[in-house]
């Protein structure tokens, strides 16, 4: 049995990619809001979809839910073309797009009841879901009297109501207090890792993604700038060595076989840089070698760009993608 995008294991069909897009493009007038996006979201992971405000995250998510028609490109969800299987795909997908939607004139429980009846679910799911998001105590309060955080929880409850296999959440922790953010983060990670739910979550908060995402996609001005594991974004850093004769030591280390970074000038003021995560043992070797070359060592340190620096570089186009990330 051969199926595109599927792996068959002992008679069980497992989708390796829950979401796959090919050259997905959305154009408004002359502007490509989403540009040739090739997204690949594996099953059972928390996929952090990151980008600055207006980068194209929400538009992409709307296209994945059939709420906006792509100008070009192709979307597959659960291994099926979205445009031909929208009702069945949406039946397996929970979503929260651009803030929580709710009927202000209804209570929290009544709001969930509308969806429960629409989706033909058991009424028991209402209480279960309210319990999960911590709204049991406010089930009979009107939604319009909820705080922003409670409305956000209600939106998440609506997304979770049908026990979806895929969750598409646009900034789900907006308006939540730190405890609420922690709860929702733990919930999403548990859903992905214990229940096999695939979670596509968008945010512009790097710390949040750092704590929960297995895979990330970084979008900027509609273009996917990076996709892969979060570790691929981490900078290994570089060893910085300041000696009494930096230029001579730079040449000498290179002849010795040490991968020294090129210096932008021949000035002896610029310190020697050795890229990568240099081990303690290798640092000792290097220092011994420099001393044996008759130079004094004034400073030795390890510099690493933070995840935030890498993200800002990717989204502001100041540098190229780190080598490992690009690979």
């Amino acid at each position: 049995m051969v199926e595109v995008g599927l792996v068959v294991t002992k008679g069980v069909t497992m989708t390796t990619e829950v979401i796959r897009t090919e050259n997905l493009t959305k154009r408004y007038g002359e502007r490509n809001v989403v540009d040739s996006l090739n997204l690949s979201v594996p099953q059972g992971v928390v996929y952090g979809f990151m980008g600055l405000n207006g980068a194209g995250k929400s538009t992409t998510m709307k296209m994945l839910l059939g709420l906006t028609t792509p100008t070009e490109g192709h979307i597959e969800v659960f291994g099926q073309p979205l445009d031909k299987n929208l009702p069945s795909i949406l039946g397996r997908t929970g979503s929260l797009i651009e803030g929580p939607s709710y009927y202000p004139n209804l209570t929290g429980a009544e709001n969930l009841s509308i969806l429960q009846r629409l989706l033909n679910l058991s009424a028991q799911r209402i209480d279960e879901t309210l319990e999960i998001v911590g709204l049991s105590g406010a089930r009979d309060k009107l939604a319009k009297s909820y705080s922003l955080g409670m409305k956000q929880r209600l939106g998440i409850a609506m997304a979770l109501l049908a026990n979806p296999q895929l969750l598409i959440l646009d900034e789900p922790t907006n308006g939540l207090d730190p405890a609420g953010i922690h709860e929702i983060r733990e919930l999403l990670v548990a859903l992905a890792h214990h229940d096999g739910v695939t979670v596509l979550v968008s945010t512009h908060l790097l710390a949040e993604i750092d704590l929960m995402a297995d895979q990330v996609g970084i979008i900027h001005e509609g273009l996917l700038r990076y996709q892969g594991p979060l570790t691929g974004l981490r900078d290994n850093g570089h060893l910085v060595l300041r000696t009494s004769d930096n230029q001579r030591i730079r040449e000498s280390l290179r002849r010795w076989g040490c991968p020294v970074a090129d210096s932008p000038s021949t000035s002896s003021d610029l310190p020697v840089e050795v890229p990568g995560n240099v081990t303690d043992l290798n640092r000792a070797h290097i220092v011994r070698y420099v001393l044996s070359e008759g130079a004094d060592v004034y400073e030795i340190s390890h510099h690493r760009r933070s995840l935030e620096d890498v993200f800002l570089d990717l989204t502001e186009g100041l540098s190229s993608i780190p080598e490992r990330a690009a690979a």
Partner: peptide, 15 residues
């Protein structure tokens, strides 16, 4: 009731 908080989009997204 459907439009004030974009419940129509929510319902369409739910199928």
């Amino acid at each position: 009731a459907e439009q004030e908080n974009d419940m129509l989009t929510r319902l369409v997204a739910a199928g």
